[in-house]
């Protein structure tokens, strides 16, 4: 039992990171109907920015986090402007290929700039394990990770539901043309969406790097894919869905690792995704839509 609860705690820890990253996928998909494959690499970039801030410039963790968020937001906006915006009315498959190309570009650009060797993330905080009950411990890092993630998700929920920008975002995702007619600046709204998504991705990336102690150019790929799976699982385009999906994926992953097999864990994640999509294509919280004839 103690072991099970321990696994749940670990699952929530990883899951909260996946959830943060999944939000970026789902926001962008909701607003421009594009699987932004480069989002996984945004988290890699975020981790690198954080790494340099922490290791090279020795800034405190909080500041490093903010710097990384701001820079990633800018990168996210730039990617949208340069690569995706010209293809807004092109066939969707072209935009998808561009996203794949962007993902390759970022990975290999960072490899070119900083080398393929993983770099060791400095210990940001002194790692402490807090014993909650006999055999169940939670690290202070896990607490920070979970609290920070949940806090940011609540903040995002507030922004989307209560602010004018959030309203504009929802309007654009519902119907671009109508939103434009209502005076919403569509391009600006899309930019903001990319910025917010990328900033959240940066946090996810930095936390991921701290949890696994390293940064490297291809580090975004697997967590990116899994976060994407989380977004689809929860219902792509639905914010609470991404959060739910993130936690579900995190839990499935740690439980399979703990009880079935470490090496098969990723196969389980994808297997469950396929089963969910086949029986409920719109994801857990998504709505089914039918094509108009």
């Amino acid at each position: 039992m103690a072991q099970f609860i321990q696994q749940i705690i670990n699952g929530l820890n990883v899951g909260s990171i996946y959830a943060l990253i999944a939000l970026g996928y789902t926001m962008v998909y909701g607003i421009v109907k594009l699987i932004n494959f480069a989002h996984g690499d945004i988290l890699m970039i975020g981790a690198y920015f954080g790494f340099f801030a922490l290791a090279t410039f020795n800034v405190p963790f909080g500041l490093a986090l903010v710097i990384s968020m701001i820079l990633c937001a800018l990168v996210g906006m730039a990617i949208d402007r340069l690569a995706y915006k010209p293809l807004r009315n092109a066939p969707r498959i072209s935009a998808l290929i561009t996203a794949l190309g962007m993902s390759m570009l970022l990975q290999n650009l960072f490899r070119l700039l900083f080398g393929a060797q993983p770099r060791r993330m400095p210990a940001v905080i002194e790692l402490k394990r807090i014993e909650i009950a006999p055999g169940i411990a939670i690290s202070n890092l896990a607490i920070i990770t979970i609290l920070l993630s949940v806090g940011l998700m609540l903040l995002l929920e507030f922004v989307v539901k209560k602010t004018k920008t959030g309203k504009a975002m929802r309007a654009v995702s519902e119907d671009k043309a109508a939103a434009k007619l209502m005076g919403v600046n569509v391009d600006k709204t899309i930019s903001i969406t990319f910025a917010i998504g990328s900033a959240l991705g940066a946090v996810g990336g930095l936390l991921y790097a701290i949890n696994y102690y390293q940064v490297e150019p291809y580090m975004g790929m697997m967590p990116g894919l899994k976060a994407f799976v989380a977004a689809v699982l929860g219902g792509i385009g639905v914010l609470p869905g991404a959060m739910l999906g993130g936690f579900v994926i995190g839990l499935i992953e740690t439980l399979t690792k703990g009880y079935i097999s470490t090496t098969w864990a990723d196969a389980f994640v994808f297997g469950i995704l396929i089963i969910v999509l086949i029986f409920k294509p719109a994801g857990i919280l998504g709505k089914n839509t039918r094509e108009k004839v």
Partner: peptide, 24 residues
């Protein structure tokens, strides 16, 4: 039965499962 992106995702997941299976 799935359309567009969803089919892409399922095939992506399938490819990954095959790779992991071959590894193990």
């Amino acid at each position: 039965r799935l359309r567009g992106d969803y089919l892409g995702i399922v095939t992506l997941g399938f490819g990954e499962i095959i790779r992991i299976a071959l590894l193990n």
